[in-house]
Design a protein around this nucleic acid. Structure first.
Lengths: 197, 197
DNA sequence: TGAGAACCATACGGTACCGTACTGAAAGTG
DNA sequence: CACTTTCAGTACGGTACCGTATGGTTCTCA
């Protein structure tokens, strides 16, 4: 992925490397001379493909946005009868460490959005898509409108939040806790028979 | 707070300014020459109070940790009968924009923790305290052990997650949604009568 | 095969940092 | 009032960046 000795680079390659670096170091870490080193070229190449650093960052935003929107649409495409399974899958995608890089990019993106108008607009667009798509799933499960909105909001706040916590030292069966939370978010009812006392 | 013309500075002042800068710019933004400018001195002062930049950062971590632990203990100190109100308060502290700076520091801290062992250890310690204290509150409300663990985890994941989302463009009564989520997290029962259809 | 386009390397000036060494001034203390 | 301690200023070398200018390859295609 970054060892082709004679290959020519293009915008996409630079943007992908920028995304990798974004995940590892955050926006402030995506610096042109660093990326160049990572790709085994000099920045002479970079400034041929891009006007300046900002040009690259704009490309990163667009690429990420398109990918995320395509993704959420695919994940929530109506599959009559299995809507609840789809909700579980949406939660799992960002709850497991199977998608570590995606989660890191997600967090870096939001960190970026806190300090940059353009990034904030992109994240807002993506979040809106996600909330709307998840709500559709809840509606398809028979959940009424307002509650569907509420649950989709809780769903995303939870998955992002949990990816930011350090709970390794907390005593408790974390795996089971996560299962219960997932059920609590997805079901109209409380986790069955977790009742009082 | 940063206009005393002849005053001598001490470690605490530098650390406080570092925390302010941390909230605005993240760890990579707390640079000694920048802080010096903000305090209207030169870095000659800084290097008298601190060995180097890392020394300052360690101080920031300790200060933050102590403050957060003191805080959560205070917030969850048993007040027989009003445990549920206390849970609501814990949620509100990080869900409203009344505590903007605290939230920004919280997020910056976790961003830092993703790339630094020392910061990660501090955040883990703070999170563990919070989860344990919140669980005590749920236990005092009569919630059984495992569910108390689960709910306190959901509580914190939610408040951190929601502080990272951009949902302004999402159509829905966000204020009411937040109220419902709070109730869903706090109550043993589902939000009463939010029923189906 | 030769001219132009596409692509990358090299070299440069400029800025923003870190950390050190040293100097200078004010505050406390006998 | 000397004299020391406590602080802050100044000046320096070093690194890591950004962006530009310009030259050198390699590819394309008539």
């Amino acid at each position: 992925m970054e060892k082709t000795p004679r290959a020519q680079l293009d915008r996409e390659t630079w943007i992908q490397t920028a995304l990798d670096t974004l995940a590892d170091e955050g926006v402030t870490g995506v610096r042109v001379e660093v990326l160049a080193k990572r790709l085994h070229v000099t920045k002479g190449s970079f400034y041929w493909h891009f006007k300046d650093r900002q040009d690259l960052l704009s490309g990163v935003l667009e690429t990420w946005k398109d990918g995320r929107i395509r993704d959420i649409i695919k994940q929530t495409r109506p599959e009559a009868g299995s809507e609840e399974a789809q909700i579980f899958r949406v939660i799992d995608v960002y709850s497991t460490s199977r998608n570590r890089k995606g989660i890191l990019i997600e967090l870096a993106m939001r960190e970026w959005a806190r300090r940059d108008e353009a990034a904030a607009a992109i994240v807002e667009e993506v979040d809106t898509w996600r909330l709307r798509c998840a709500r559709e799933l809840f509606l398809a499960c028979g959940v009424p409108m307002h509650e569907a909105s509420t649950r989709s909001m809780l769903l995303y706040a939870y998955v992002f939040g949990v990816s930011m916590m350090n709970y390794e030292k907390f005593d408790g069966d974390v795996a089971r806790m996560k299962d219960d939370i997932r059920a609590l978010i997805a079901h109209s009812q409380t986790p069955q028979a977790s009742a009082k006392d």
